[in-house]
Amino acid sequence: MVYIIIGTIAILISFIASIVQYKKAEPLWLRLFPWYLGFTMTIQLGGYLYSHFLLKSNYFIFNIQQIADFVFWVYIFLKIYKTKGVKVVLLGLAAFAIIFSGYNIIAGEGFYNFNSKTSTIISIVLLIFSLLYFAELFVNNNRINYFTIPTFWICTGLFFFNLGSIIYLGLFNYITSHKLDEDGKIYGVIIVTLNILMYALFTIGFFCRTIWKKMSY
């Protein structure tokens, strides 16, 4: 329960930050974040309440959420990338991940079990997306201050979350079937820590221009 509360507070802070900065959001796709974070928070709480009160598995909720979540990130990265070739790679990887997710639900791990393989594939693909963004920054020949770019903070948050969660989520079914983490403590520590890191970086991303301006004067 404590992990749920801490995780929710992290999203909530980021959600409020995205609303506060809504009108100043630049680039414009940043305005999608209040909706995205609101949706994520609702799903997290809804999933928890569903399993808590109905005493049923909530995995199917997260199976759907992770695909919706992935589609959101595909859209965001399409907006972020400058190079056409990178966009083509992104679309190819996205198509592969979505097809795989569908296949996994229909003929693989099923709808009511946690789709650990889908989760791993999505994490790997999102990691590649983040790395491609870093590569674009790496080869950019203009003078850039990363700290003033919201995209940089957001991608960094996403990068760390997926990097840190990939092992646990990849082995999720193995861990649960062998009852290696029955009380969910390890899961809580890893995922909540990564969540806090990710949402903190998102929050910095929403405010980064203002913060940097203040530091410069």
Partner: peptide
């Protein structure tokens, strides 16, 4: 579990190193 946590920590540190290099 220790392996899982250690590998996760190493991965995150590697990521941090990569960002530092960038």
């Amino acid at each position: 579990l220790t392996y899982i946590i250690a590998t996760t920590a190493i991965l995150v540190l590697l990521g941090a190193f990569l960002l530092f290099v960038l």
